[in-house]
Computed example of a mutant assay.
Amino acid sequence: MKNILIINSGSSSLKFQLIQMPSEKVLASGMVERIGLDNSRLHYKAQDQLTEELEIRDHSEALKVITDHLRHPQTGVIKQKEEIAAVGHRVVHGGDVFSETIRINEQVKEKIQEYFSLAPLHNPANLKGIEVSEKLFPAAEQIAVFDTSFHRSIPRKAAQYAIPNELYEKNHIQLYGFHGTSHKFVSKKAIERFNKENSKIISIHLGNGCSITAIKDGKSLDHSLGFAPVNGLIMGTRSGDIDQSVIFYLIDELGYTSQEVSDLLHKESGMYGLTGYSDLRDIEEKAAAGDKKCQLALDMNAYRIKKYIGAYIAAMNGADALVFTAGIGENSDVIRSLVCKDMDFFGIELDEEKNKNRDKKLREIQTGDSRVKIFVIPTNEELEIAQQSFELIS
């Protein structure tokens, strides 16, 4: 048995799970949120569950607080830090260099830093989590699992952009894809449910970041996010697909700098730009109360997803299942209903009563007449990272 600590480091949050492998037993889990902000909060669950409000200035302090709880006489599950065999890190962008899970060394960290500009909301925080855990757990192996790895199977006809070839061949500008750890995990669960390898699955990951993937026979065939995680679906603060001419207009006619445009598309757009809210729960509540901007934003969000579903059904010549996952995908019956409405031509028919079920387990929510299964599958990126980390060190 080996204990593997999984770290998912965000810009102002740090999620963790301590998982015993290969039994897949979760010894402890939780997160620190609002790092560096007022009212930082620790959520910790082992034998019992607790929440503490603390002043946590940075990721180093956050991980130290977590480590102290893991070893605490009352709340802890280990006695020494050396009982942790490996620390598995989620890293968003691995470019075209990393196609597999890898042990972290100085060269790996340098490459992660090279991709800061491609994933500015993620890679800097991911690297910070790695550097902090190296100091706190010097005896543990540090493992990187890249969100982009799962999408390396996407064929060149789907991955290359229609710009001069040398930009692909020399500068490696192409579709990389993201949320791969989540899409891989839920598609494996769906395939297990089918009990067959030959399958056509459309996996829809909806959280603050959103993406959709066409998965054929367990391999990524196409994906909505591309060179960096900002295009495709409408997200919490990210724009998703936009006419490139808008960028030139913002710079040439309205006087924006390139950095201001980047900030606008990454941090000020999406559902936040449309409504003033980035949390979908607030938007749904306002829409239900008659807010037309919020209702329009929900309609736009679902419409974009529907367009990608149609495209991926064409790409795979059919679909056996839709999979909704991640925070919004698992919990918003409103979005699922809007997405699946008027999709009966494709054999997609939602059972509205099943859709309202709040069960946290894998469930099917299609009608008996639906030719396409509609799954809600809770994602578990941490378990997927633990499985890949354990395979590497075993």
Results as ranks from 00 to 15, higher is better:
I348V: 15
G129D: 10
Q47S: 13
A140P: 01
R71G: 02
R193E: 12
K216Q: 09
P73I: 10
M300V: 12
S182C: 09
Y308H: 10
N317V: 05
H89K: 13
N126H: 12
A28H: 12
I66E: 00
V372K: 08
S40W: 14
K360W: 00
S153T: 15
R336D: 11
A297M: 10
A86Y: 14
D58Y: 01
L221F: 13
G347V: 07
G95D: 04
P378N: 05
T181L: 15
L225F: 02
N317Q: 12
G180Y: 06
Q174G: 01
N208S: 14
I78G: 10
R281I: 05
I365E: 11
H179W: 06
R156V: 13
L350I: 11
E349P: 00
A311Q: 14
P138T: 03
E197S: 09
K354A: 14
H183M: 13
M316S: 06
K64D: 03
F346T: 08
L27T: 11
L121P: 05
Q387W: 07
G236M: 10
F178Q: 12
G273F: 10
Q17D: 03
I104K: 05
N105P: 04
Q80S: 14
L18W: 05
S389Q: 08
L70Q: 06
S133N: 03
D252W: 00
R152E: 02
V97I: 13
L265K: 03
L233P: 09
Q49M: 02
P73M: 07
G290R: 08
K293Y: 01
L274D: 02
G270P: 06
T75G: 02
R336Q: 08
G207K: 11
H172P: 00
Y272L: 15
C340Q: 12
D282Y: 12
S23L: 06
I173N: 01
N126E: 09
M300F: 14
E349V: 15
I377H: 03
D369Q: 13
I19D: 08
L14A: 05
I251R: 03
L233I: 11
D96P: 05
M31W: 02
R57V: 12
R363N: 04
T379V: 14
G327R: 03
D282K: 15
D38T: 12
E352H: 08
I393A: 11
Q387D: 02
F137W: 14
F98Q: 00
T275A: 07
N123D: 12
V97R: 10
I4C: 01
H151R: 13
F185V: 11
N126K: 07
S262Q: 14
I212A: 09
G327E: 06
E166H: 07
G30Y: 01
S99E: 11
K341L: 04
C210I: 07
K306Y: 08
S220A: 15
